[in-house]
Write a protein that binds this DNA or RNA. Structure first.
Lengths: 126, 126
DNA sequence: CAGTATCCCGTTAGATACTG
DNA sequence: CAGTATCTAACGGGATACTG
């Protein structure tokens, strides 16, 4: 739960003048990569249907628009989570796959999925 | 990584007409709770300084405004992650603590923190 | 088929002022 | 001290049209 790098500085124990800074929070960094409406779904979809084609994703991811799909795929690619393979064919074909690094998200996604389910149960009671 | 409840339906294996729906993605549900600019930092801050007072949080969480702090604390409370204890004193005192349920986020936060650090290293190389 | 380019809107976050 | 109320700015996401 220690998500502030200042924590490493033993001089600066959690005292009255300790400061929590968003820029040094690695959880926030992860959220930026996984955040937004489509990222988790897309990662999951690509994981389960790899190699995933653009048109397939457009059909299978309910409600996503073409521009959103392109944009999100670019961001995932820039973050090194997915790889994009272009086939010089007519009609054009592009396939997306999770990279090795993208696969390292697996335990986090699983933990989040499990927690999310418990959260729903918890909310229904409240 | 299976974050679509449809996955449980064995009739509907990942085929050509499989649909990924945002409403049935528990990862997205978790993201809504943990998402936004301040939630991870606040959860961490409350965890490390509990019982955390309003004024303390305002001072220690760098850059947060009073209205944002109030709003985020309310949301965390409504989600059952933190508890709010009011002391009928002058001057008024309010203390925030993680609930049992809030503490169950710990493994996720730790996993995300670890991944976020590796992501940063990965990005610097690219 | 797999995109790019624009324009638009709703939500989220920030600034400021006021109060029990 | 610990809030609430209100207004404004920024950004994520959506609709539509066009293209190699």
């Amino acid at each position: 739960m220690k998500n502030n790098t200042n924590i490493d500085n033993q001089e600066d124990k959690i005292g009255k003048n300790f400061v929590f800074d968003e820029n040094s929070c690695p959880v926030t960094a992860t959220m930026k990569v996984l955040g937004g409406k489509w990222k988790p779904i897309l990662i999951n979809a690509i994981y389960l249907t790899a190699p995933a084609r653009f048109g397939e994703l457009k059909r299978s991811v309910k409600g996503i628009t073409q521009s959103m799909l392109t944009q999100q795929l670019r961001e995932l690619e820039d973050d090194g989570l997915i790889s994009r393979k272009i086939y010089a064919e007519i009609p054009p074909r592009v396939e997306y796959t999770l990279t090795e690094f993208g696969l390292t998200l697996s335990p986090i996604m699983q933990a989040m999925a499990k927690w999310g389910e418990e959260y729903r149960i918890n909310k229904q009671k409240a």
